[in-house]
């Protein structure tokens, strides 16, 4: 087990390095970064000044290694636009995005787990088919559009929630609901298929032969087994949700890292964009490691092997 985790850790570090390199390469895609920064109205002289100021006149490899060494230390340079350290900017915005992601995941779990279980218990009934339809609808729902609909309906018509912006807990409800839609289908399907597999297993027959209550059979015996992969996937889903939060943050004008990235893309503020890509990727990598770890902790066959 330890060996497996160590192997995964090494892969994670390699992936992180790859992403570091890619996010460096990303900003060099346009060719001359200095021209992009300077903007369309800059003179040749302006471009030259910028080139000097940001060290863009050095050889590419020097720039790369310099950037790599700093990035590893958590130094992503300075924002062109905000006149602040990129690390500070991200540090102040990340809690909003993380909270949003966790709210979304929580909503997704609260919806997906019970529905998945009910669908499995009533396999092939109309309940099951309805639940699977819900999964399909969730999969097909454009998140930004759902966000707008909720703004009109819950925000304007029913006046239940603030329409947009960053603020107290009530500001996280609508974006959280929208974000949860991206995780609900897969969590629900996984819960359902895991429960169906568990419920048809020999050990559930044993539990029934022991005369245990229905609740105990469903929760203690079936769900305990079905939940192991679901918990792990939930961690990975959180990673995907954080990556997708840029759309939702833009729709609801929530000032998280996604919004920051979107703003910065519009302002050609590349150090910020680069750093957000990197941070989100690193969080995703950490979450997949966490998923492996959770798997190992929850599954006694892995834990004690």
């Amino acid at each position: 087990m330890l060996k497996f985790l160590l192997r995964r850790l090494i892969v994670a570090i390699l992936v992180a390095l790859t992403v570091l390199t890619l996010s460096f390469a990303l900003t060099r895609l346009s060719g001359d970064l200095a021209i992009s920064i300077a903007g369309p109205n800059a003179t040749q002289q302006d471009v030259e000044i910028i080139r000097q100021a940001y060290g863009l006149n050095r050889p590419l490899t020097t720039q790369y290694f310099d950037w790599l060494v700093r990035a590893v230390q958590g130094d992503f340079g300075e924002s062109y636009f905000f006149r602040d350290r990129v690390a500070n900017l991200i540090g102040s915005r990340l809690p909003i995005t993380m909270t949003l992601g966790l709210v979304g995941l929580l909503i997704a779990l609260v919806v997906a787990l019970p529905l998945g279980i009910i669908a499995a218990v009533r396999e092939n009934s109309w309940v099951d088919r309805t639940v699977m339809m819900v999964a399909l609808i969730g999969q097909a729902m454009p998140s930004f559009w759902l966000g707008l609909i909720l703004m009109v309906w819950l925000g304007l018509n029913l006046d239940l929630l603030p329409i947009s912006g960053t603020g107290g807990p009530e500001y996280y409800v609508m974006p959280g609901i929208v974000l949860s839609f991206s995780a609900i289908p897969s969590l629900m399907r996984l819960t359902r298929s895991g429960m169906i597999e568990a419920l048809s297993s020999d050990y559930i027959r044993t539990a029934r032969a022991k005369g245990l209550s229905r609740l105990s059979i469903l929760v203690k015996h079936a769900f305990r087994n079905a939940a192991i992969p679901v918990v792990a996937i939930a961690a990975v889903q959180l990673g995907f949700m954080l990556g997708g939060s840029i759309v939702i943050e833009s729709v609801f004008a929530m000032h998280g890292v996604g919004y920051l990235a979107w703003e910065s893309i519009g302002k050609n503020d590349f150090p910020v964009v680069q750093a957000v890509v990197l941070v989100l990727a690193l969080i995703y990598i950490a979450l997949t490691l966490l998923a492996d770890l959770l798997n190992a902790v929850l599954d006694p066959r892995l834990r004690t092997a």
């Binding site: 992936v15 992403v19 990673g239 990556g243 997708g244 989100l280 995703y284």
Partner: peptide, 9 residues
């Protein structure tokens, strides 16, 4: 590596 890259961003 591909999965760790946030697509939309």
């Amino acid at each position: 590596a591909r999965l760790s890259i946030p697509v939309v961003l």
